[in-house]
Structure formats: C-alpha cells, structure tokens
C-alpha cells in the first residue's frame, strides 16, 4: 500500500510503485481532473501540483511522490462551488472542448502561487508546457490574468 496526501486527504492505494501518479489519481482515486494526453510529458493535460510545483503526473511514478502534497483541480473547488481561478475560467468562458483545461488551471495555479501578478509574457512562458488544440489560448490568458489581478490566487 502506498500512502499519499491528495487534496488535503490522506489516502492509501494498492498500486505498483511504478504506476504513474496519473493512473493512481484516475483509476484508483476516481478523480477526473488530471487527463491522459500523451504519457510523455509533452502536452500537460495531466498537470497536477506536487507541493508548490506543477508537474506532469503521467511521468511521475507514484513511488516518487513520498510525503509531498498532491493537488488536483478537484482540490481547487467543485462545479457548484468553483475556486477563484476556476471561477475566472468560467467568467472568461475559457474552454472549448476543455480537455486541456484542468491541466492549464493547475499550471496557472502554481504560477500564481509563486508570482501573484505575472505579466502576460510570464503567463505565456509558464503555460508553454501545456497544449490546447481548440485554440482557446487567448481566453486562457485572460482568465489567468483575471485571477491574478484580483490577487485571489
């Protein structure tokens, strides 16, 4: 059994230590936020936070997590009661298919936690590891800016 702290809760999972964190989150813990995109750390759909860092959960084995706190998009709020960054995405209608969005939000969350008032270039650089195929980039940038301007992250 591997013990993890996910979204503030201690959980134990029976998984092979080599299992990427992504599959533990989705398959064992039934969380939907982190998405499988490439399994190669190239697209960011699986982005979650480990302590203060945004990471590709598809390439982090669950065994490497250790005592670090795992945060997924579910840890920021719910559809009914979204957190500030999620609310900013809703207000800017910053999604089309939305498959990349949970990962985008987590990468942006990590940015805002270390840099509450980023410039647009900062946001672009920080989000560079994450791909969006629908072309929602302009809205995502606005949403992150909106959340940062409020200083609510």
């Amino acid at each position: 059994m591997i013990t993890l702290k996910v979204n503030g809760r201690e959980v134990s999972v029976d998984a092979d230590p080599a299992t990427p964190l992504l599959y533990v989150l989705r398959d064992h813990l039934k969380l939907n936020g982190a998405k499988f995109g490439c399994g190669l750390g190239q697209c960011g759909a699986c982005t979650v936070m480990l302590d203060s860092e945004a990471v590709f959960s598809c390439v982090v084995p669950v065994s490497a997590v250790g005592k670090r706190a795992v945060k997924t998009v579910e840890g920021l709020g719910t559809p009914e009661n979204p957190g500030p960054l999620q609310q900013a995405f809703i207000e800017e209608q910053a999604a089309q298919c939305g498959y990349c969005i949970a990962g985008m939000i987590m990468r942006a969350q990590a940015l805002l936690e270390r840099s509450p008032s980023p410039t647009e270039d900062d946001i672009r650089a920080a989000l560079a590891p994450n791909l969006c195929r629908c072309g929602t980039h302009m809205r995502i940038l606005r949403a992150v800016k909106r959340a940062s301007d409020k200083g609510s992250a």
């Binding site: 969380l31 719910t78 559809p79 979204p82 999604a95 949970a102």
Partner: peptide
C-alpha cells in the same frame, strides 16, 4: 449565456467519455 458544460470541465466533473466509470468496468 455561459456554456452549460464548462463548470464540470474546470472542476473535474464527469465531462468526457474518458471519465465514465461503470461497475465492473475493465481497461
């Protein structure tokens, strides 16, 4: 009007076929 599908997409709701989980489901 705001899109009805976006709240689930930003907060990890069941939004995609990828998220469906049925009893007894296998991979």
């Amino acid at each position: 009007l705001r899109r009805v599908d976006i709240p689930a997409k930003v907060a990890g709701g069941v939004a995609y076929v990828h998220d469906l989980r049925f009893p007894g489901m296998v991979h």
